[in-house]
Design a protein around this nucleic acid. Sequence first.
DNA 1: ATGGCTGGCGACGCCAGA
Length: 266
Amino acid sequence: MARRLLKLATFNVNGIAARLPHLLAWLAEEKPDVVALQELKALDAAFPAGPLEAAGYGALWHGQRSWNGVALLGRDVVPVESRRGLPGDPGDTQSRYLEAAVHGVLVAAIYAPNGNPQPGPKFDYKLRWMQRLARRAKILVAQPHPVAIIGDFNVVPTDGDIYDPKGWRRDALLQPQARDAYGDLLAQGWTDALRQVHGQARIYTFWDYFRQHAERDRGLRIDHLLLNPVLAGSLRDAGVDRWVRLQDKASDHAPAWVKVQAPPAR
DNA sequence: ATGGCTGGCGACGCCAGA
C-alpha cells in the first residue's frame, strides 16, 4: 500500500511581519507539511506564532533584530528541536540555523550568509560558515533515518542556475569558492532535489526587485533542498511555487519544495 | 560599471539584501 506524500518546503520570506499575509495564503493553498522560513528580520517576541497556529501550524523560531532569523513549521505538529545555531563558532550570534524532527524527518533549516561584497570580511564569514555547515552535514548525511537540509544557501551552483552569469560573475553567490563549498556538500552524498527531478531545465527560486525580473523570469536558483540517501530514495517530486513571487508586495524568493513518501510512523 | 527596488530601523536617510 502506498504511503502518503509529505511536502517539505523552504521559503525566504524577506521579513515575516511584511509577509505574513502571503505566507498564510501560500500555506492555505499548498498545504505543505514541513516549512523552513528564512529572513524573519524580527525579534523572537515578534514572531506570529498565534496566526500560524490558527492556520494549523506548530512552529519553532530563532529570531534576531533587523536581520536573518529562521523558523520551522509543522502542519498539525510542533517540530521537536534538536539544535539551535550552527556549531563551530561560539562567537557567531547570527540566527541562521535551526534543526528539528518534523513528521519523521530530521530537518535542518538554514540561511547561509550572502557574502557580498567580495572579497572582504563578509565573504570570509560566508566561506567559514559553509565549512561549519559541511562539518554538521557530514554527520547528518550518514544518519540511518530521513534527513533534509533545506533553505537559502546563497549559492548559484552553476552558470545554468542564473539568467545572466556574465553580469553576475563578480557576485559572492557565483564565486568558485562558494560553488566549491556547495559541491563539497553534494560530494558527501546529498541529493539536490530540484536538479534530480528536473535535470538541466531552467529553474529559479529568487528574482530581484529590479526591471520586472520576476515577470520576465530572470532569476537565480539559490534556495535548495538537500536529501540524505535514506530520504532521497523516497523522493517523488520537486518544484517551485513561482505564483507566490508574482503576487503584489511579494518576497523576492518563491517557496521551493519536495514531495517524498512519508516515513513510516514509529 | 552602475543603478535599479525592498524591509527594517527610527525618524529621513541609511544599511543590507542577492
